[in-house]
């Protein structure tokens, strides 16, 4: 003979409560997602061959070709040369320094992650002078950065060209 339904209902409610309690206990123990990785690239944009910028590095990752169209939005220069590249983790609520060149460090603070995975960044582009007391903030901004769309910063002129920075969130 089958047991009455109300006995199963009691079992069901008990099992549901146990599963809920287990989930609420174990959910916070799940591994937090790793902090996002940010990369800063420094390009030298010029009409010439770039010989006046001796610190060029080989573009092994194809970054110039990848961003050439976007870089042309920032400058009318015909050629782009990669000078520096720096990748680091941007842990939430901490400031990090990305230094594709020690003369132009980027200070970035990951102030939070958006529901769509984008991060909010408070960043400052510095220019180091020969004397530390003369370090200058060139530009500062609050930006929501996604992995799909990098941020390009067209900075100061230098020699026969212009220094252009690119910040991207690694996916």
């Amino acid at each position: 003979m089958m047991p009455p339904l109300h006995r199963h209902s009691r079992r069901f409610i008990t099992a549901l409560c146990a599963a809920w309690a287990a989930w609420t206990t174990l959910a916070p123990l799940q591994a937090a997602p790793p902090p996002p990785q940010l990369t800063a690239l420094l390009f030298y944009a010029t009409d010439g061959d770039g010989s006046e910028a001796p610190e060029k590095m080989p573009d092994t990752s194809g970054d110039i070709k990848r961003y050439e169209k976007a870089l042309r939005q920032a400058t009318t220069a015909r050629h782009f040369h990669l000078i520096g590249k720096h990748t680091a983790e941007a842990q939430a609520r901490f400031s990090i320094w990305l230094k594709p060149s020690p003369q132009f460090p980027l200070q970035l603070e990951n102030t939070g992650t958006m529901p769509d995975g984008a991060i909010t960044l408070y960043w400052i582009l510095w220019q180091k002078e020969t004397l530390p007391i003369k370090d200058r903030e060139l530009v500062k901004s609050t930006t929501i950065l996604t992995a799909k769309t990098p941020l390009i910063i067209a900075g100061p002129q230098w020699r026969n060209g212009r220094l252009i920075f690119l910040v991207r969130k690694e996916s």
């Binding site: 420094l42 030298y44 910028a53 001796p54 610190e55 060029k56 590095m57 961003y67 976007a70 939005q73 920032a74 990669l82 000078i83 520096g84 594709p100 060149s101 020690p102 003369q103 132009f104 582009l125 220019q127 060139l138 530009v139 901004s141 930006t143 769309t149 990098p150 941020l151 390009i152 910063i153 067209a154 900075g155 100061p156 002129q157 230098w158 020699r159 220094l163 690119l166």
Partner: peptide, 20 residues
């Protein structure tokens, strides 16, 4: 890409090297 262009900055001195 999103481009922030800072226009009017004084040029970085030509006699200094931008180290990569």
């Amino acid at each position: 890409a999103v481009v922030v262009s800072v226009d009017g900055l004084s040029a970085f001195p030509s006699d200094r090297l931008v180290v990569g």
